[in-house]
Amino acid sequence: MSGVSLKPRAAFEARVDLSGITPAVTCPLTLLELEGLPVPYGGKSVKLAELFFIEGAPEGVLLIEIGDVRLDGVGAGMQEGELIVDGVVGAWAGRGMGGGVLRISGDAGDFLGAELSGGRIELAGNAGAHAGGATSGSRRGMSGGVLKIGGSAGARAAERQRGGLIVIGGDAGEGLATDMIAGTASVGGAVGPLMGRGMKRGTIFTRTVPALPAGFIDTGEQELVALQLMARRVPELKAVIGESVRARRLVGDTLLGGQGEVLVPA
């Protein structure tokens, strides 16, 4: 089948792990082969067809209709192609993705875009905790690509991020950019408490000056050529930067020798 559409047969009663079932995997398969793909479901492994109605879709696309909060690992490991979810997803959507586009019209669970290294994730709804973060035991979070969250992000977004761009249209939860290593994130709405602890490098754009830990230093308002450069080069940042050429710049976490920055465009 050139493109594949998956529609859950019913709401899932246990967690389903779709990791590795990407357009590059599904598109070359025949319907029969697709039906037999093993999928972890709760404590078992079942056939894809037990969980989904499988139909055709446009070339190169994997389409998931409706979605499910227990549908984990959507787009995980994806390197190319387009994966569209018309609904919600569970945890680990786009985990370790290296290329391609993942579009989700609903909300996502925890660890959306964790360890993303390339490609683009566009989430219309809200994301759970650790968006763009690091998986258990991993030292680094997202390292490249774009993670766009239309709604709000939960706690510890951009934790250990080391590259790429996270754009949060709504609010960011507690502990934003904790231990951030590098990269860029922007928050359109409010920023939760305890952001930036252990931040090494990286840039966070916010609309108002957030509460910051003791290791952050306010360098005052600065005229920054880079603002308009970023606004022009990165369309996603245009919304938060606007026409500003000045921004308040706060640097930290200096207690750990960090040189990260929070920029609040004037």
Partner: peptide, 22 residues
């Protein structure tokens, strides 16, 4: 110096007395 990489493009910001050299 501060590096920013967007997509495949990286630029740098160097603090200088007048402000930043981008």
């Amino acid at each position: 110096q501060i590096s920013k990489k967007i997509g495949d493009k990286r630029f740098w910001r160097l603090p200088v007395m007048e402000g930043e050299f981008v």
